[in-house]
Every structure is written in structure tokens, then in C-alpha cells.
Computed example of a mutant assay.
Amino acid sequence: MFKKLYLWTLSLAESRHAPFALGLVAFAESSFFPIPPDTILVPMSIARPNRALLYALICTIGSVTGGLLGYAIGALLFDTVGKWLISVYGYGDRVEQMRLLYAHWGWAVILIKGLTPIPFKIVTITSGLLAYSLPLFILLSIVTRAARFFFVAALLHRFGGTIHVLLEKYFGVFLAGLAAITVLGFWIVGHML
């Protein structure tokens, strides 16, 4: 069953619409969507390792622009959409703690959380809510998201063939691992800070 799913995923990754879907998922993940773009970035980079760095660039651009939507949700729509999204991810009662943390360490929060499995939308919405410097937010988002996506893409570009063979055998384990990382990110959000 997983082999068929893997082959289907690779065929989708080779579609001419795949880069658009990748950018869309990266955009949505940074503002409201729970699934990380890695779910598309990995198979696309395995299907076409020579394009892995281009795919990382698409993810970075999509994530940073989606982050601007998250920032706008926090800055302009916090009392409606923002409060609801923050509550869904477990930060509803921790806004004051985040305000204090951002006052001294906002740059570090953006950089560190942008690299971790913690949902980036928490960072983007909170940054807007707390009126964190927009130019600095954009710069830090570019740095942290590019580092994350280009690291993954460089690994896949370099070791794509080996990873492709391993994924053919262990695609179910890969999916379970990705799901575990996503759940871990949500758990961290709910229990940290």
C-alpha cells in the first residue's frame, strides 16, 4: 500500500503544477495551515534532485509571503481570526508571556522557531500581534526559512538517489516520522513557554 502511495506521490511531484502547489502549501503553512511544506518538498526533490534548490527557493518565498499574511492576522485580525488560531495551537493563555519574551528576544524566537517543528504560524501571528518590527521580521523570516528549506534541499540534491531507494522501502516509516514531527511541533507549542 505504501509503495503505491509513494509512487503516486512521486508522479504528482513530477507534475507541472507541483511547484505552484509547493509554494501554496508553504504560504498557507506560515499563516494558518497545519501541514508543513516538507511533505511536498521531499518527494519533489527526490523526483528531480537537480531542481531541489529551486524548490527550496519556492518554499522560502511562499513561506515568507505567507508569514506576512500571518503577521497581518496578528496585527489586524487578532481579536477574531488571530485569537482563534493562537488558541487552536495552545498559546491562547500565553500571549502575555510571549509579549515579554518578544520584548527581549524577539529576533531569537523568530530564528529558532523558524527552524524547528514548531508551527511557524505561531511566530508570524504573534509577531504581528506584538507589532514586532516588520522589516526585521521579514529579514529574520528569510534567514530562518531559507536555512531550513535549503538544508533539506541540499541533502536531497546530494543524497537524493540513496534517499529515493530508502523511501521506496520505508515510505510508511517516512510518513509516520513526518506525522510524528508535526505532532511534536504542536505538542511543543502547547507545553512550552
Rank of each mutant, 00 (worst) to 15 (best):
M1P: 08
K4E: 10
Y6C: 06
W8I: 10
T9M: 15
S11T: 13
L12E: 15
E14L: 12
E14D: 13
R16M: 04
H17G: 04
A18W: 05
A18C: 14
F20T: 02
V25T: 06
A26C: 12
A26K: 10
F27V: 10
F32L: 10
F32M: 07
F33S: 11
P34H: 07
I35D: 07
P36C: 06
T39S: 06
T39I: 11
T39Q: 11
I40E: 10
V42A: 11
V42E: 02
P43Y: 03
P43G: 03
P43H: 04
S45M: 11
S45W: 06
I46K: 04
A47L: 05
A47S: 15
R48Q: 15
N50V: 10
R51E: 13
L54E: 13
L54R: 11
A56M: 05
T60F: 03
V64S: 01
T65Q: 07
G66F: 08
G66S: 05
G66Q: 11
G67N: 09
L68E: 05
L68D: 02
L68G: 11
G70R: 09
A72S: 15
G74Y: 00
L76S: 12
L76D: 05
L76P: 02
L77T: 01
D79H: 14
T80W: 14
I86T: 08
G90Y: 08
Y91P: 00
D93M: 10
V95A: 03
E96H: 14
E96T: 12
E96P: 01
Q97K: 13
L100F: 13
Y102V: 00
A103R: 11
W105Y: 15
W105K: 12
W105Q: 13
V109N: 01
V109D: 01
V109P: 01
I110A: 13
K113G: 15
K113Y: 15
G114Y: 06
G114W: 07
L115W: 06
P117N: 14
P117L: 10
I118A: 13
P119H: 13
P119Q: 09
I122H: 00
T124W: 07
T124P: 01
S127N: 05
S127Q: 02
L129T: 00
L130G: 01
A131H: 12
S133K: 00
L136G: 00
L136R: 07
L139T: 14
L140Q: 02
V143S: 02
T144Q: 05
R145Y: 12
A147W: 00
F151T: 12
A153L: 06
A154D: 04
A154S: 13
L155K: 01
L156S: 03
L156Q: 03
L156K: 10
R158H: 08
F159C: 04
T162G: 10
T162I: 14
E168H: 06
K169Y: 04
K169D: 09
K169L: 06
Y170D: 09
Y170A: 13
F171W: 12
G172D: 03
V173S: 06
A176P: 02
G177N: 07
A179H: 13
A180G: 15
A180H: 03
V183W: 09
L184H: 08
L184P: 05
F186V: 15
F186Q: 14
W187M: 04
I188T: 09
V189N: 14
G190T: 12
L193C: 00
